[in-house]
Design a protein around this nucleic acid. Structure first.
Lengths: 343, 343
DNA sequence: CGCTATCATGTTAGCGCTATCATTGTTGTA
DNA sequence: TACAACAATGATAGCGCTAACATGATAGCG
């Protein structure tokens, strides 16, 4: 028998109408239909209207995958965060989202769960989607991931903290924030402070704040003391920590918590137990969450401009993508001491 | 008259290595290299190792866009929520994310900002990315969007509330939740309740809870009263509402808030003003956020299983994508009355 | 030994779109 | 009138990958 030679092998992906079909019905070439969508000014108005009418009629939905492949541009922005539980990252994401969505970009969200290998995997995946830029929380990456980011030839933005960045960098100086709060505590007369963090190995930015805190204390001749619990920060853990400090370090006159969740938990628990804050023990936090600002006594904390961080990061990336020369690679969004009544 | 020369027109997208290059270096055909990645069992182990070695050597990153186009499958899941500010949606997203990411799917997150036209636009975009399934918060869509969802021929999941769904549906009965809380309030002896919501036109699920609330009250011969503020729910707005109720409705004996943010704000404000809760006025909320459960008096509220909702929704979709017959299209995740000390 | 089943790999032809260059007709202008 | 400049559209050839089918080698079996 005859061997079947190159015969047409049907293989339609979806049964959606294609640009080619639209073009044919409108009596134009596919490229004109394409231009009507992506470059409307280059197409005669009458033609354009006709094309749009057919699109409407057929319920045409552009296949963005095909378009991206052909143009090797994807309008994706990769965003990699270590956690979605923490509202801090959520607010950064929101700042990014609002800005990028308005500019017609789609965010690809990745969550590493504080696993640095996972980050590498996510970066690979997102590069595979031809993302236009990458945003990652923090400056810590494994070597392979760092190499990928360095060589991927598109804007790479590291947010949250400032330091030796690969490319763009928007954040705040956590070390300085730790110093700031410690100085405040000293100025208020506290001499037996204790720092309480939650999983500092993961939340290494809290560790940086502790380093700043220690530095200031030691300069004043005071030894710094640390408790690092093995639970994510929460109201409940904050309460537990308060009790633990009262028991194990009865001389402590102030607890400097790594975040507002812990601090607020401790504060509420103190109220409940009838412990006078700040007279018996003072409490400070970090983040400036609404909650801490809404209880009495108002929590002393440091406000981190989270949404701003996302917005600024997005704006800088957009500038780069628009081909503008970027003068400043590093943006310090700063922080603000909220002098409450808990210290 | 020589027309034109079909001369080769170079056009490389990125300068990344391609599968073809990998294949050539490994001395196999492209399809074998492709199989080594996507169907490892179908390739001889020695060959596979050789291919992987070359990939490693070249720093090959698979172009997922090309792969998706060729296979018309994308491993994207579209998730459309009306807001990112509200932690409620965040927790649903988290449930979705964890489950889908573990199954190798990537979430495409869209935020409508309570704009129903925007939802339509997002659905179009996401269909353009050949997403494998769509998840939207709520059952309300504009007609064009509804048609798209109906005809897109892939799993469509509507989460948050139960009702007349297009396809799959996971959520809870908000009307019943409203009834539940109202019954509780009646049982506790309150007779002058007032319901306070924030932007009920947007947050229509809170409106459904109000409907349930009214129904129960009216059955008991009590007229229902409503305040609908034009701000998103927050601690601060909750506090303002408390004052407003005290002034405009001095007879009110309980405030049933549409959410815990408002309720907690009111509760904290009452503490601050020295108003006795629940003796002078009782307070109830909805959601079961940790905060409300962590203050004294503990907030009476209804716990909505948010992360569970996301997880169940993802699991149902995955079942469908795996080709399993889905027996139940509708999943009621229920809710739980948290009987606190504020009522 | 002939025959089928299975494995490992290859050939060909797209997926649906856009970059690049080419072609036509129209207008401006010296 | 000649010619450049432009506006509108089209022909062709990919983007990088995989589906569908094909092939050759080896194994299994009565």
């Amino acid at each position: 028998m005859s061997k079947r030679k190159p015969q047409t092998r049907p293989r339609r992906g979806s049964d959606q109408p294609t640009l080619a079909q639209v073009a044919q019905m409108a009596g134009v070439s596919p490229i004109t239909a394409s231009r009507a969508l992506n470059d409307p000014e280059k197409v005669n108005e009458a033609t354009r209207d006709r094309v749009f009418q057919v699109m409407e009629h057929l319920g045409y939905v552009p296949n963005l995958i095909a378009g991206s492949l052909a143009s090797s541009r994807s309008r994706f922005i990769a965003v990699i965060v270590p956690s979605l539980v923490n509202t801090v990252f959520l607010e950064v994401i929101k700042g990014l989202q609002d800005t990028f969505e308005a500019a017609g970009y789609q965010i690809l969200l990745g969550n590493t769960n504080y696993d640095i290998e996972r980050e590498h995997q996510l970066v690979r995946t997102f590069l595979g989607w031809s993302c236009s830029a990458l945003v990652t929380a923090g400056l810590k990456h494994n070597p392979a991931c760092r190499r990928l980011l360095q060589e991927c030839d598109r804007p790479v933005m590291e947010v949250m903290e400032l330091g030796e960045a690969l490319d763009l960098n928007v954040g705040l100086d956590h070390h300085e924030a730790g110093r700031c709060m410690a100085s405040h505590l000293l100025a208020r007369g506290y001499r037996q402070p204790i720092y309480v963090g939650a999983r500092l190995a993961d939340d290494y930015r809290a560790g940086m704040r502790y380093a700043g805190h220690s530095e200031v204390l030691e300069a004043a001749g005071i030894a710094s003391r640390l408790i690092d619990i093995d639970q994510p920060g929460s109201l409940e853990e904050g309460a537990k920590c308060l009790e633990r400090v009262r028991q194990d370090y009865p001389d402590a006159d102030v607890i400097h918590f790594a975040n507002d969740d812990l601090a607020t938990g401790a504060l509420l628990h103190a109220l409940r137990l009838g412990i006078q804050v700040p007279d018996e023990i003072a409490i400070a936090g970090f983040n400036g969450l609404p909650l801490g600002q809404y209880i009495t006594p108002r929590l002393t904390t440091i406000l981190s401009p989270r949404e701003t961080m996302g917005r600024v990061a997005a704006e800088e990336i957009l500038k780069r993508l628009a081909g503008k020369r970027v003068t400043r690679r590093k943006h310090d969004v700063g922080f603000q001491l909220l002098n409450g009544k808990s210290t």
